[in-house]
Write a protein that binds this DNA or RNA. Sequence first.
DNA 1: CGTCTTTGACCGGCGC
DNA 2: GCGCCGGTCAAAGACG
Length: 306
Amino acid sequence: MDDDKDKVDPISGGFSSDPTWTFQGDYSFFGSDVREHSVLNDFGWNCQPPLPVFDRIDSDAVGNSMSLPEVGVGVVASEVRTGSVDEARDVSMSNPLVSSSSSEDRLETSTASGDAASGGKPPSSERAGKLKKKGPKKIRQPRFAFMTKSEIDHLEDGYRWRKYGQKAVKNSPFPRSYYRCTNSKCIVKKRVERSSDDPATVITTYEGQHCHHTVGFPRGLMADHDSPYTRQLNPSSALQPINYSRQQFLDRLHVSRVSQSRPQLVLSSDQSRDHIHHKLPQTSSQGSHVDQGLLGDIVPPRMRNQ
DNA sequence: CGTCTTTGACCGGCGC
DNA sequence: GCGCCGGTCAAAGACG
């Protein structure tokens, strides 16, 4: 192990100081506010507010703007302004990440306006009579995406999801899956797709904010209820700062990954464990940062508490 | 039997 | 107007 690699660049969050973790290209990917949220925790990434305001997350843009760290999570943290479309467009115009035209535009318009009601197919009789009335321009849901190296598409994140659709992605051999939070009162959605550039990379896009706590890992995940990981996932256990050393964290995480055969958000393949060991930037626990759900590591509080 | 996934059809926006 | 495309619905099937 080379401790030199554990130094953390407060600006880059450690990625830029290590070639393996370098986000190639430039930080425009993160917008101008990159300095303000590049704080890493033991998890590898911890977006601290304020996040840059993007018009959208565009997986194409993501792929073009960055190269993923070999292991771990490449974060495309973003917040979509909840306001008028025009407002958001103004943001996009000033953000180099945001392309002028993308499918996400269409996504925004279609999902936010009707959401559960508009997109699908009501009974034919109903369909004929119930012509879409143009409601007020949709309110955009906060949205962010991240990229993970994983063989598993749908990564556990502490919430339960119901898959409601799958579509082939243009210019990609991999389909995109659509998930919705199983909590009936929760409107959070999630898209999962593999990068066509790097099939080992899973791009997960969340939309909206959970209005409830995590449900834990009902499928037997994270049985170690006292792990730092669990503490971050479970609000009830996240009441205190995480005190594990990085080494302890990695050891525990490794055990859980191997035993469960289910890679978690930050980590990917087992063979990369040593790699992670070397490459994970070392930071303090940022003890004040405790949160609910895995999203707590990514979504800034103001996004979650809107 | 309840829950979840699969899958074909449909909707609406956008570009041409 | 038409076709493309992303997103969604919902019936049917699979699964535990």
